[in-house]
């Protein structure tokens, strides 16, 4: 009788301890990951007419899922949805040109950055903008949920006029129809847009702000974030990242800067 009681006690203790440990769900406990990628950025995160996703971020997302040993499905997100899909659990990871900043870090846990890009300026071919200061008095497009235009005005103190648009497609149309004079954001986004457009829109090549592009996770998933960081390190160590950059932005792109593991933000 006593032995039975002892066994029951041990089992009860184990069950109680077991329940307490997994309060925070980690992506590592899942078999299949839902990864949010952009739908509106050619060469970065783009939904083709046949519904499939393609681009640099999409390939990074796939490689990360493989390295974590997980199956995955992709979920299309726009800039404004990125925090929301993580918060309400619709996506486990967000790989969608998500720039790390302190304000966002209050709500999102960032692994990476997996890529350092710079802010650049896209103009019409006939325009003469060569520097961020040349944007003073000009109209620049702002895509809702992105913070690049705000950085020009607030951080650099350049008196540009910010015109909001819901996505880059309409932003680009506005640039060509002279409703705005410039589009400013991550250089990779601009390169992809200009490449797809094909009408000779010009990248100023000013590289004025460092943009740390990270992988978004639900706040609190520290083990998941650390695993993603290790996966990113291995993507640089076996040169996958260099291959992907060359594949999507061309060999010339690699001359813009050094391709090396970025300094991680840290998961805690």
């Amino acid at each position: 009788m006593k032995r039975v009681l002892a066994v029951v006690l041990v089992l009860a203790a184990m069950a109680a301890a077991g329940c307490g440990v997994s309060a925070q769900e980690s992506i590592l406990d899942k078999e299949k990951l839902v990864i949010g990628v952009r739908t509106d950025l050619p060469s970065v995160g783009f939904r083709r007419s046949d519904g499939r996703f393609e681009g640099f971020d999409v390939d990074v997302a796939r490689s990360l899922a493989d390295r974590l040993g997980k199956e995955h499905t992709l979920l299309g997100v726009l800039a404004a949805d990125r925090e929301k899909v993580l918060r309400d659990g619709r996506a486990d990871l967000v790989v969608a040109t998500f720039t790390i900043d302190q304000e966002r870090k209050r709500r999102v846990l960032f692994a990476g950055p997996y890529h350092i890009s710079y802010q650049d300026i896209l103009t019409r071919p006939d325009d003469t903008i060569t520097n961020v200061r040349d944007l003073a008095g000009r109209r620049i497009c702002e895509v809702q949920g992105a913070n690049a235009a705000k950085r020009v005005v607030e951080e650099r103190g350049v008196a540009a006029r910010v015109v909001p648009f819901p996505d880059y497609k309409r932003c680009l149309a506005a640039l060509k129809s002279r409703q705005v004079d410039a589009v400013t954001t991550n250089d990779v986004i601009l390169a992809g847009l200009a490449g797809q457009d094909g009408s000779g829109l010009r990248l100023a090549g000013v590289q004025f702000n460092e943009q740390r592009t990270g992988v978004g996770l639900a706040k609190g998933d520290v083990p998941g974030c650390e695993a993603v960081n290790r996966a990113i390190t291995s993507m640089y160590q076996d040169e996958t990242m260099e291959k992907l950059l060359r594949k999507w932005f061309g060999a010339e792109w690699l001359n813009r800067g050094v391709v090396a593991v970025p300094q991680f933000e840290g998961c805690s």
């Binding site: 350092i116 650390e226 960081n229 390190t233 800067g257 050094v258 090396a260 593991v261 970025p262 300094q263 991680f264 840290g266 998961c267 805690s268």
Partner: peptide, 16 residues
């Protein structure tokens, strides 16, 4: 861009 990030990430790895 190459050396300091690696040193920093080593520190983070110990934290992990």
């Amino acid at each position: 861009m190459v050396l300091l990030p690696q040193a920093y990430n080593l520190t983070l790895e110990s934290g992990t």
